[in-house]
C-alpha cells in the first residue's frame, strides 16, 4: 500500500485513475503492474523462440533457406504499417487522456485496428507465397523455427486486433469508465510490445536472412 505522504502524482499510471471513485485505491496500479509481469513472461516466450530460430537457421536440410524464402520488400511495408499503428495507438492514448469526447479515441483505435489488419493481410500473403513455393514447416528445422516464431507474433497481433474490437464495443457500451481506461492502457502496452518484438523479427530474421 501507499504511504499517504507520497501523493498520487508520484504513482500515476499514465492516466488519473487513482482519484477515480470507480476503483479501489491502488487497484489500477496493481492491475497495470500485473500486466507488466505478464508481458515479461510473454517476452521470455519470444526470446526463447528467437533462440530456437538462431540454432535452427542453418538447419535447412536441403529445403529452401533464408535467402530463397525471405523477401525484404513486403516485410519492409509490414514494418512501416506496424510502426505506424504504434504511433496511432499512442495518439489514441493521448486522446483518451486529454479529449473530453470519445471521437478522437475511437477514430485512432479504428485506424490502429485497420493497420493491424493490413499487417496481418500482408503477412498472411507472405506466408501463403512461401507455402506455395514449397517452403513448408515440415521440410526443415529452419522452416519449422521460422513458422514458430513469425506466426506466433502474428497470432499476438490477431489477438490484439480482437482486443481492440472488444474495447471499441466497450467504449460504445460503457463510455470511458475506469475499467475501460485501465484495459486500454494494458492493450497499449501489449500493442507496443508487439512492435518491439517485430523490430527484433525484422532485424534477426529478415535483414539477416537477406544479407546472408
Amino acid at each position: 500500500m501507499i504511504a499517504p505522504a507520497q501523493g498520487p502524482q508520484l504513482r500515476h499510471v499514465g492516466l488519473n485513475l487513482l482519484d477515480s471513485d470507480e476503483m479501489e485505491p491502488g487497484e489500477a496500479a496493481t492491475g497495470l503492474y500485473g500486466f507488466w509481469l505478464f508481458l515479461m513472461s510473454d517476452a521470455i516466450l519470444f526470446a526463447l523462440l528467437f533462440a530456437i530460430y538462431g540454432t535452427q537457421v542453418a538447419a535447412t536440410a536441403g529445403a529452401p533457406g533464408p535467402q530463397e524464402t525471405l523477401k525484404l520488400g513486403p516485410t519492409f511495408i509490414e514494418t512501416l504499417i506496424l510502426l505506424t499503428s504504434s504511433l496511432t495507438f499512442g495518439l489514441a492514448a493521448i486522446a483518451l487522456k486529454y479529449d473530453k469526447g470519445r471521437r478522437g479515441l475511437v477514430l485512432w483505435l479504428c485506424v490502429t485496428l485497420a493497420l493491424g489488419i493490413a499487417f496481418l493481410g500482408f503477412e498472411l500473403s507472405d506466408l501463403r507465397t512461401m507455402i506455395s513455393d514449397g517452403a513448408t514447416p515440415n521440410r526443415s528445422g529452419f522452416l519449422s523455427a521460422f513458422f514458430a516464431l513469425v506466426p506466433t507474433h502474428g497470432l499476438h497481433v490477431a489477438a490484439g486486433c480482437l482486443w481492440i474490437g472488444v474495447m471499441l464495443t466497450q467504449i460504445a457500451v460503457f463510455g470511458t469508465d475506469a475499467r475501460v481506461k485501465l484495459n486500454l492502457l494494458k492493450l497499449g502496452l501489449f500493442w507496443h510490445l508487439l512492435d518491439i518484438v517485430w523490430i527484433a523479427i525484422f532485424s534477426v530474421v529478415y535483414l539477416q536472412g537477406a544479407s546472408a
Partner: peptide
Amino acid sequence: TPPLTVATALLALDRYLDFHFFTNDLGGN
C-alpha cells in the same frame, strides 16, 4: 515456466503438424 510452455508447444507442433524441432531428421535438434 515459459520455457516449459515453449518446449511442450514445440513438441506438439512436431507431433501434430510435422514440424522438425526435435526430430532425428531434417534439421531437428
